[in-house]
């Protein structure tokens, strides 16, 4: 039997890898993929806690998170298409209109 702590450690490591990817990459599609990575890490931790505590609410939560992640990817990619059409770049440091 693998103890709960190992699942939590695994989920935390993947979450922080995703967080680092979000904060360091310039490419906006890579930032969206990093968000998906972070959501998946949270899902792992939900399912593990749900299994070890003995309550199925975590499974419902994972179901809802997957639905929200799907809609987030659709909206995010629509915004990426809009950005490439208007700014001709896919790098987030190309957007500097709000800089003083």
């Amino acid at each position: 039997m693998v103890s709960l702590d190992w699942y939590v450690v695994l989920s935390l490591i993947i979450f922080f890898i995703g967080m680092f990817g979000f904060l360091s990459r310039r490419n906006i599609i890579m930032m969206l993929i990093s968000i998906e990575l972070m959501l998946n890490a949270v899902n792992i931790s939900f399912v593990a806690y749900s299994h070890y505590i003995g309550d199925m609410a975590g499974h419902i939560m994972v179901f809802l998170i997957i639905a929200v992640a799907a809609s987030e990817a659709a909206i995010g990619l629509a915004l990426v298409i809009l950005m490439v059409r208007n700014k001709e770049t896919i790098f987030v440091d190309g957007l500097k209109e709000l800089k003083w």
């Binding site: 360091s24 990459r25 310039r26 490419n27 599609i29 890579m30 969206l32 993929i33 998906e36 992640a69 799907a70 990817a73 659709a74 990619l77 990426v80 298409i81 490439v84 896919i90 790098f91 987030v92 440091d93």
Partner: peptide
């Protein structure tokens, strides 16, 4: 979701972006 990502990347044609640095 991942097929959606693949389609968008194929639509955008990002050849010239590959030569620039990947980290901010």
């Amino acid at each position: 979701i991942m097929v959606l990502f693949l389609f968008v990347i194929m639509l955008l044609n990002l050849r010239e972006e590959l030569r620039k640095s990947r980290f901010a």
